[in-house]
Structures are given as structure tokens and as C-alpha cells.
């Protein structure tokens, strides 16, 4: 929030993504996030610039955590500031929606059934060891 505070802002909309204990009906014990960090940063910056081009916002900040996160941990925090609340909400929604389809970050979930990569809505078994 502090990163986007300014005297011109009348609204700061925030979003926190948190680690859930279930996914597609399966129990989840913990998540591990992996990222292509340099590209994730530049792609996220593009998304924020697009949002700034479409809505009148005075600031935006995003932070995505990587590595192992436990149930309830915050995986991503976003904040968007604007003179008024409507553009702040709309730009915030745009940034998180685009992040989820474009920014190169992946999560792997572990539960009682084993470990799976999440690829969009699908569960994909992981292959920790070479099979050939």
C-alpha cells in the first residue's frame, strides 16, 4: 500500500492472493511457486503499463512470492491507487486477471494424493525423476 500512496490518490484498491487448502476437490498441503523471474518482472510491468493506459491510476505495485508457501500464506499482493475508486478497482482486476494468463510463474501443489503442477485448470502429475 505504501508504494502507491500519494496526495493525489483518493482510493487504493488492494488484492491479496492466498494459499487455499483445496483445489478441484483435492486437499492441498502446501504450494511451491517457480518463476522465470526476469521475464515475470517485465511482463508484469507491461501489464501495469497497459492498465495505466486504460484507466486513470496514479500508482500500482505488485509482489509475487516464490518458493514454498503454506496454507493461508499470501502468494501475491497488488495495490492500485487512483483519484477515485472505480478506476482503482477496474485496473486492479485487469492486473490480476492478466497476470494469471501471461506472467511466467507456476505453482505445484502437494497433498495426500501427491504432487501436481497446476497448468490453468488442469492437474498434471510431476515427474521428479528421469524415466528414460
Amino acid at each position: 500500500m505504501r508504494a502507491v500512496e500519494s496526495p493525489t490518490a483518493g482510493a487504493i484498491a488492494t488484492f491479496a492472493g492466498t494459499v487455499r487448502d483445496h483445489h478441484l476437490g483435492k486437499q492441498v498441503a502446501f504450494l511451491e511457486y517457480e518463476g522465470y523471474e526476469s521475464m515475470a518482472r517485465s511482463e508484469l510491468m507491461d501489464v501495469i503499463e497497459e492498465a495505466a493506459g486504460r484507466w486513470s491510476i496514479s500508482g500500482a505495485a505488485a509482489h509475487h512470492r516464490l518458493g514454498r508457501l503454506e496454507i493461508g500464506d499470501i502468494s501475491i499482493g497488488l495495490a492500485v491507487a487512483s483519484a477515485h475508486r472505480a478506476p482503482a478497482f477496474e485496473a486492479l482486476r485487469y492486473v490480476i486477471d492478466e497476470l494469471k494468463v501471461r506472467v511466467p510463474v507456476w505453482k505445484r501443489e502437494t497433498g495426500p494424493d501427491g504432487t501436481h503442477w497446476i497448468e490453468g485448470p488442469e492437474l498434471v502429475p510431476t515427474r521428479p525423476e528421469p524415466a528414460d
Binding site: G17, Y33, G35, Y36, S38, M39, A40, S42, E43, H64, S75, I76, I96, L99, K100, V101, R102, V103, P104, V105, W106, K107, W117, I118, E119, G120, E122
Partner: peptide, 25 residues
């Protein structure tokens, strides 16, 4: 670090990444 085409011609020292469907957030 930019999305590109499979048939794009590469230059020396380019960095190519193969990106599975993303699932951040």
C-alpha cells in the same frame, strides 16, 4: 524474455525459454 514465435530466427546469444501454461497468482 518476450513471448515469441516457434519459427522466429534467432541471433547469437539469444535466450530462449520454453514456457508451460502459467499458473501464478
Amino acid at each position: 524474455e518476450r513471448y515469441a514465435e516457434w519459427e522466429q530466427e534467432l541471433l547469437a546469444d539469444d535466450e530462449v525459454a520454453f514456457i508451460p501454461p502459467v499458473s501464478g497468482g
